[in-house]
Design a protein around this nucleic acid. Sequence first.
DNA 1: GTCCGAAAAGACAACGTTGTCATGCTCTCC
DNA 2: GGAGAGCATGACAACGTTGTCTTTTCGGAC
Lengths: 376, 376
Amino acid sequence: MTTNNAYEADMTERRWPGQETGKPGFLRPPSMARPADECRHSPLPPLMPSIHDVAAMAGVSIKTVSRVVNKAPNVSAELRERVTAAIRQLGYRPNQSARRLAGGRSFMIAFLYNNPAPSYNGGIQSGAANRCRDLGYHLVVEPMPLAGEDRFAILDRLVAALRPDGVFLVPPLSDDARLLQRLSELKLPCARIAGSVMAESFNIPTPERAAGRMVADHLIGLGHCRIGVITPPASHKAAMQRVEGFRDGLLAAGLPIDDALFMEGAFDFESGIRAGERLLAEVRRPTAIFATNDDMALGALTVAHRLKLSVPEDLSVVGFDDTPAGLTAWPPLTTVSQPLEAMGSAVIDALAGSSADSPQFTFRLIQRGSSGPAAV
Amino acid sequence: MTTNNAYEADMTERRWPGQETGKPGFLRPPSMARPADECRHSPLPPLMPSIHDVAAMAGVSIKTVSRVVNKAPNVSAELRERVTAAIRQLGYRPNQSARRLAGGRSFMIAFLYNNPAPSYNGGIQSGAANRCRDLGYHLVVEPMPLAGEDRFAILDRLVAALRPDGVFLVPPLSDDARLLQRLSELKLPCARIAGSVMAESFNIPTPERAAGRMVADHLIGLGHCRIGVITPPASHKAAMQRVEGFRDGLLAAGLPIDDALFMEGAFDFESGIRAGERLLAEVRRPTAIFATNDDMALGALTVAHRLKLSVPEDLSVVGFDDTPAGLTAWPPLTTVSQPLEAMGSAVIDALAGSSADSPQFTFRLIQRGSSGPAAV
DNA sequence: GTCCGAAAAGACAACGTTGTCATGCTCTCC
DNA sequence: GGAGAGCATGACAACGTTGTCTTTTCGGAC
């Protein structure tokens, strides 16, 4: 039911008295929406105490409570003490909607994603959500289409309705120049993970290149000298660095760079199969394959199985991302793991300005059964 | 930095004039938070028009605009037309914070999850987020610990800050009795997927049992009569139904039920390996294994590889969930797929009361290379 | 003692929306 | 033509916070 009418789509259908529809709907109807009110003047403590309740209990003005809550300076120790006690006793929590309305902050951070790898998104999201929790923010998720004008409509609606305090993007969205430009027009603080396109938004860099080098060193160390590479789609700039790093390793080891051994994939299993088939059909068959993500590596592994090649005896395969599928494959996949949760956490820190420096991450090579010494 | 002090933890650190810290933080400082104001009386259309701008342009009161926006009855066609035009021209979008504050609705739905399978969460979340978008809601994600008192604190904070219009849970959270009780105390509309514990909250049932039966029929149809089953942990009530359905199938086919062939797993890869090892060490080795989720099935598959059993010639393996890892395994896993996106979407419909009936889902058996005829 | 400046506390008006009530206006029916 | 019922519209007060400005209080220097 996606409609192009931006206005219509933003409104929720709602039943009005007189419009009888059979099913009542599950959400609390508006009329009973404020249980707090009934409690306000009752002897029982209010269910959802407001700043006024706290102020009354502490015998101060609401402004003083506000100051204490926001850790503003110029509040005497004594009052701060009293207010804090009242807050604790009542279990007061500021109402975010009211804060947003009055103060211009929403305490919402929007997570825009498109990455089809659920474990990648999941890891980042989990780290980000937990850090948000610590900092008093909330994470709103918004899946975005990769292309098309829809994404601008989606973004506009999100921004208009929520006015998030910040937005963050993961690859490949973090290289979507038009999206970044729109975000900058909207003057939304924005942070990206592993972006490579230049943009004014903050970017959290990742050691893609060093990781690519690490894979090269690993395979070369095992004696491989003819190594096929399944490269990312050209749009995936960050992942492209993995290939660069891999080339660095070949150069450093004095190995030749054979363009026939570089096959472009689409970051999915199918394209890994196709690339693997072509690589393994080479007359001088490579003894190892480095795929720039796990899905493609698993495609290569599947081709090896189909061709009855033993892994790692006949062929070593290395992936990238440390997805769950790599762990459960046979043989388990040698791959590179990223500290996803820490990265998600760092993005929130960057947006909230609560971290001291630009974070540094290290990617780790996870050696498992799919890579071994080259056959002699 | 998780602190137990509920009050402290809810507040974001904030820089006040005079407190100089080196890094400015990335979020827009509060003072420049309202760019809309500057535009209000300028000749240019306001960047973020409010209901007042629309009312002024259409020459009506703000209340009338509100009525049009909320599709309330009793507005003349002419005014509705004028207002709609003004809304469109200005690109007006209602401010959710203000709506929440005034109307008692937040247009937020909270998604509580714990399920460690990212593709499961991801699928549900994606369906839910898209449906939210259609209906004008937003999806706030909140990862929850499985046990411990923390989850109540997390829930309380979420509710206090956001007052979400609804909450939804996926397994195994949907069977967390204490959490459900707390939600009901908070009077929060709540919907669950595949819950089996009785609770007053709405539950979206899934055909787990029928799916288990389907797997049994599939394997029995291939000629298997000795089939190992890796069961879910006892806490996963919904998944337990899969085993029931499987038993139904055995009974219907007149096959014996051998308790030695039922091994409890923990829904993860490792436990699948352990259960697989034990099953395949049986003197009369089963010719097929049904694991109640893919991770455990992949564990069994790994054991088969280690024992140099051919799959499916020597052993058929069937999983459940249709995870990406099952697709990329070797051989690709026969499994059961759930319409995750539709389920996520349906939960939102249930919460918003926008669907006519309780939805019915069908699980599909995905036949792939890991299951085949029983050896004679 | 007076005065001054700074610090502490409060009063009050936003913020943008919805709920409630009041006010017309237009029918219909006697 | 007058009463009453309904519809269409608007005025205004919430909602719970924060920003701004004002007032009070408190030290200390003269």
